Simulated scan of single mutants.
Amino acid sequence: MKHSFTATIFDVLKKHFGEDAQAIFNNSELLKYINQKTVSANKGSKARGSFGNLYAIYVLVEDYINGGFAEKGDYSKYEGAKFSDLFKRQRELPFGAKLQNHALNQRMNQEFRKYFPTCDFIPIIRVVDTKRYWINTNLIVLNVNKKNVNLSYAIIEIIDSYVASKRSAFESFIETCERLKDIENEKPEEIKSFILGLLEPNVDARIFEIVSYSILKADYNDQTVYFGFEEDSIQPENLKLYKTGRTNANDGGIDFVMKPLGRFFQVTETTDVKKYFLDIDKLEKFPITFVVKSTETVKELTERIKEGAKQQYSVEAIVNKYVSCIEEIINIDKLKNSLQSVEDKGNIPDVLNEIIKQSKVEFNYDVE
């Protein structure tokens, strides 16, 4: 598989290994895996970045180098890196502050197996009891053209280059937002067009969640409900949407919460009905609104969920219970309609400001 960042990978390999670069790439499943995971490098901020699994490789290879094993020493006698040290290091890396432990523990190895089912090795070796980890040297020390080559330094440089590319793309995204903010009163249509571009099905899941939240927050804020404990003390109150944490967080299926109605929202990019039912189960079948990164109609999505429920649960009462837990489905078209409603009220700048604020928080922009 070749893509725009593949050329960068080969530049690094040529720098380290000269004319053996192609042969080394051909003989390295790990380099081919990294090539797969860096496809989004030059696709801008709207393309999903792959940091979790790449950083799992990165911190172990870095630990291998820091231990002096790339130069000499018997790595087989190394007691292994502590999970806590590796996890801490992952979160120190750019865009890594909220990474979870899945990649180090199983996800990276599982995905590697998916790409290379006939490979005899997995990249990460771990002992669960001691929480010690090693990089599998069978994948970073190769014999190519009768030469022993060590890929460790090249792997670090390749991943650093990928991160630099993604950082540059995100900084460009923030700069565009800031520029539009400066002209928000002069060219509101340009701002709207920019936001609509962030609702496309191919955008990074984190960007989509941020944009959908920003639109819905502005739209709901102008909607009023009346609350009170006694008839003569009922007061008007605007609907307020709150973001519960970082995107893609393991938060039990709650991405947004609405006050005062107590509605729960979950953002998803999948149309796999099992994911919907899993989120419903996490909340013990509390009603939930799904914000779906899909251009399918609400009717089509609803029918898909119903059919999936019938296939998974043959009992009609169970099917009806799951379907009844779906309070609302908000697709891309509904988000566009909400944005239009916000524009009609002259509040498009509020959406842009929220996108800037949430993006900086999500990607640790201020910290970095």
Score class of each variant (00 low, 15 high):
Phe256Trp: 05
Lys336His: 00
Lys37Phe: 07
Lys360Thr: 08
Ser40Pro: 05
Thr8Pro: 10
Val39Ser: 11
Lys357Asn: 08
Thr295Gly: 11
Ala70Gln: 13
Gln36Ile: 06
Phe69Val: 03
Ile195Gln: 01
Gln100Tyr: 13
Val257Ser: 11
Glu368Thr: 09
Asn109Gln: 05
Ser212Pro: 01
Gly197Pro: 04
Gly52Ile: 00
Phe112Tyr: 03
Thr268Cys: 05
Gln223Gly: 04
Ile210Thr: 01
His16Thr: 08
Leu241Asn: 12
Glu186Trp: 07
Gly18Pro: 01
Leu54Pro: 03
Phe264Lys: 04
Asn66Gly: 10
Glu362Met: 06
Phe194Arg: 07
Asn53Ser: 12
Ile326Gly: 11
Glu62Arg: 08
Gln266Pro: 00
Val342Cys: 07
Ser76Ile: 13
Lys98Gly: 14
Thr8Ile: 02
Thr6Leu: 08
Thr130Phe: 01
Glu328Ala: 04
Lys282Asn: 08
Phe264Val: 12
Lys192Thr: 02
Val361Trp: 12
Lys114Tyr: 10
Asp333Gly: 06
Leu31Ala: 02
Ile57Arg: 12
Val367Phe: 13
Phe277Val: 08
Arg126Val: 12
Tyr220Lys: 12
Asp219Cys: 15
Thr289Met: 03
Ile57Ala: 02
Tyr55Pro: 07
Ala81Cys: 05
Phe173Ile: 05
Lys334Asp: 15
Ala103Tyr: 02
Asp219Ile: 11
Thr130Ile: 07
Asp20Gly: 03
Glu284Tyr: 15
Ser50Leu: 10
Ile159Ser: 00
Val361Tyr: 14
Glu111Trp: 06
Lys293Pro: 13
Asn138Pro: 10
Ser314Gly: 06
Val298Phe: 06
Val149Leu: 03
Asn101Leu: 10
Phe69Trp: 03
Gly346His: 04
Gly252Glu: 02
Leu104Thr: 00
Tyr58Trp: 05
Glu29Thr: 14
Val59Leu: 00
Glu343Cys: 06
Gln36Lys: 12
Asp182Glu: 15
Glu327Trp: 12
Gly346Val: 08
Phe264Cys: 14
Cys325Gly: 03
Lys14Phe: 10
Ser193Asn: 14
Leu99His: 09
Tyr242Pro: 04
Ile330Cys: 08
Ser40Phe: 07
Cys325His: 06
Asp160Ile: 09
Pro123Tyr: 02
Glu184Pro: 14
Asn136Asp: 12
Val267Thr: 15
Asp232Trp: 15
Cys177Tyr: 02
Ala56Ile: 06
Val12Thr: 00
Gln311His: 09
Glu230Val: 10
Arg304Ile: 05
Asp222Thr: 09
Lys345Leu: 11
Ser294Met: 04
Thr268Ala: 01
Ile329Pro: 09
Lys14Met: 12
Ser172Thr: 15
Val61His: 00
Ser314Gln: 11
Glu368His: 14
Tyr64Asp: 01
Lys72Asn: 11
Gly73Trp: 07
Thr118Cys: 09
Thr38Gly: 00
Lys282Cys: 10
Leu198Glu: 13
Phe121His: 12
Trp134Glu: 05
Ile9Glu: 08
Asn145Ser: 07
Gly308Tyr: 04
Ser341Ile: 07
Asp279Ile: 09
Asn148Glu: 10
Gly67Ile: 00
Cys325Thr: 11
Lys293Cys: 04
Ile191Pro: 00
Val361Ile: 14
Leu301Gln: 05
Ala164Asp: 13
Arg304His: 02
Lys32Ser: 09
Ser50Gln: 13
